[in-house]
Design a protein around this nucleic acid. Structure first.
Lengths: 240, 240
DNA sequence: TGGGCGTTGTGACCGCAGTCACATTGGCCT
DNA sequence: AGGCCAATGTGACTGCGGTCACAACGCCCA
């Protein structure tokens, strides 16, 4: 088995151990078999670009391993990170289904393993099986739901502090750390990138994090953040 | 035929003249027939609430006539208008498919005619017909696409002027007026509501519109806006 | 026709955060 | 160890736009 970029490749979706947890991977065996036949398994290094905004949709990308940064950009070069996609997620789905250009740019943050399916193959696959089609509809609903939350966080909060607090809480929740008394989160993004996620400037992020540390709400150990006062953070997130 | 709120009710989707233009209404006759059997046609007055954010999904609402304001709100009461939905659009689709609560609140701006389908009926309808299911996936993609644009407009522009200009241009484009030398748009929202669409304050909208009039980019005739210098408006929308 | 209320217009003030400029740190590669 | 570059930290300045407070319409209806 070839292992580029220090990963082991999962060759077969039928035997993939992660399958049960993933919405899209969890298909009836027959469907999975035909998925097997149209998918291309590929590996990407860190920093690779899967597709770019406004490009004609070539097909879908299912993340098996690694995480992928999704961003939109303005003509002036300003960038906004929409989300960090994790294994099991399907990228380029809505573009592939609707035929419109990709809405976002997808760039790997780690070495990634990805299953690619060409648009025509995928559409055939869809139209062949109601169950698959329904799964896709569910995935799309999920995505829509996420983007709505994004809008809510972006549009309904005035201060940058509020947005940062929301982001940190979201991260702790995603890692299942929120139940702990002192949740930890591993920072995988630079201040610059965090700034792009909440629509503010790099300096502001630095300053806000420093503030949180000063007030003993946060605590940094290397690139790991320790949340020492989750209640206070929630306070900030919902303030005003 | 009953005509509440001064509308004529379209009783039958099979004979609806608007059918061909609408993505979701344009189904094969057999599917349309079974849709007929599960839909409830209802009429709402202006200002009626179809559903509210965070409510358990009861089903979908297809707009036949009138327009509907979709908004999200924060616990503090701050409101953001996500979009104005027009006839042919399906509301509550993603919530109904995924089973998650409605993401937005839907409130009629006019007297509206709406086809409602209960969640269980709709899911059965979906799973019975790949074509229907695929249409739904396309609709969801469409919605996702729109929300992404929303995020782009919200997150990637710094000045309120930029966002307002974008909104005005979008409206002229939607009305098919953008080709004319002096496009007109009928203002159906108050300054307050416009402010909620672009995430700013009512006063700022008033001031910005006044500025545009002063610079002879805009011109108001009652509640109709005349765009006298579309190029300049585009300039503002893409500035910086 | 005159209230009455929702909408629009305008001034004054001020705080958040963007921007620029530079110092400092830390990690990585040779 | 040393050097290099990206990432982080910090101060000073400034302007956009939020907020408050009122004035002036404009429209509907009794």
């Amino acid at each position: 088995m070839i292992s580029p970029y220090g990963m082991e490749i999962v060759e077969n979706c039928l035997t993939c151990k992660l399958r049960a947890e993933r919405l899209f991977c969890d298909l009836p065996p027959a469907a999975l078999q035909s998925f097997e036949e149209i998918k291309f398994t590929t590996a990407y290094p860190e920093g690779a670009t899967l597709f770019v905004e406004r490009q004609e949709p070539r097909g879908i990308f299912v993340i098996c391993r690694g995480s992928v940064k999704l961003s939109v950009s303005a003509p002036n070069g300003k960038v906004m990170i929409v989300k960090i996609a994790e294994p099991g997620e399907v990228l380029g789905l809505s573009a592939t289904v609707s035929g419109r250009p990709y809405e976002v740019t997808a760039e790997t943050l780690d070495p990634c393993q990805v299953n690619f399916v060409k648009r025509e193959d995928f559409l055939r696959f869809l139209k062949n099986d109601v169950q698959v089609c329904f799964k896709v509809a569910q995935q799309l609903s999920e995505k829509y739901h996420n983007v709505c939350n994004e809008i809510r966080a972006l549009g309904l909060s005035h201060s940058a502090a509020e947005k940062l607090a929301k982001l940190l809480l979201e991260w702790t929740a995603k890692n299942g750390e929120s139940a702990k008394t002192e949740p930890r989160i591993k920072l995988r993004l630079t201040h610059e990138e965090i700034a792009q996620m909440i629509g503010t400037s790099r300096e502001t992020v630095t300053r806000l994090l420093a503030d949180l540390k000063k007030h003993e709400i946060l605590n940094a150990r290397g690139s790991t953040l320790v949340i020492r006062n989750q209640a206070a953070l929630r306070e900030i997130a919902n303030s005003n």
